[in-house]
Computed example of a mutant assay.
Amino acid sequence: MRRIPWIAVLLVAGCGQAGSGGGVACPDIGTRVGIGLTVPDPAGVTRATLDACWGDQCVTRPVDLQPETAAGATSCTGTGPDAACGASMVPTGGLQGFADIPGLAAEPVQVTVRFDDGRPHTVTVTPGFLHPGGPSCAAGGPQAQLVAGQDHELKPR
């Protein structure tokens, strides 16, 4: 009787499952953990500092604000399956940034943002887990997104 090495049996078994179409291929994509901030009307805003408190922990992070962009007009050449389309990113006039907060919990977080004038703007938000590879793939870290209104009041996005 011929003996088959165990490693060969495991490799064949693993290949059979992957090729059966029953599994979902999930990309190895990371997720930033923290809080995003969008300032659609940034009159008088050039910088922001974010304080986040949950449980018995508080952290302060700078928010690196950058010009916000969106996809501009789309142009296409051709109409068949080999057609090519493209769009350029154009500035919206707003600002956006992200504060990395390792260890951020997916529980209510009190967030205070201070812009150039130093006045505190506070809101409570609950970060949620993202699934960057799709709903069938593992969750990444928790994130929350905030938008600053006309008087810089904060709202969850």
Rank of each mutant, 00 (worst) to 15 (best):
T77G: 15
T77Y: 14
G78S: 12
G78K: 11
T79Q: 10
D82S: 03
A83M: 10
A84G: 14
C85D: 14
G86W: 15
A87M: 15
M89N: 09
T92Q: 04
T92V: 05
T92D: 00
G93W: 05
G94T: 11
L95S: 01
Q96T: 10
Q96V: 14
Q96N: 13
G97Q: 13
F98W: 14
F98Y: 15
F98H: 05
A99G: 05
A99E: 15
D100E: 12
D100I: 12
I101S: 01
I101W: 09
G103C: 14
A105F: 13
A105S: 13
E107S: 15
P108A: 10
P108G: 07
V109H: 00
V109Q: 00
V109A: 00
Q110H: 05
V111D: 11
T112D: 10
T112N: 07
T112E: 12
V113P: 10
V113D: 10
R114Y: 03
F115T: 07
F115D: 11
D117P: 10
G118C: 10
G118E: 13
P120K: 03
H121Q: 11
H121W: 01
H121E: 02
T122S: 11
T122M: 06
T124F: 00
T124Q: 06
V125D: 08
V125M: 02
T126G: 10
T126A: 08
T126N: 02
P127D: 08
P127E: 02
P127K: 00
P127Q: 04
F129C: 00
L130K: 04
L130V: 06
L130R: 06
H131I: 00
P132K: 12
G133P: 08
G133T: 09
G133I: 07
G133E: 05
G133N: 10
P135I: 06
P135Y: 02
P135N: 02
P135L: 07
S136L: 05
S136M: 09
S136I: 02
S136E: 07
S136H: 02
C137L: 10
C137K: 13
A139W: 08
A139Y: 11
G140H: 08
G140N: 06
G140C: 09
G140R: 05
P142F: 11
P142A: 10
Q143S: 07
Q143G: 04
A144I: 11
A144H: 09
Q145W: 08
L146K: 03
L146C: 09
L146Q: 03
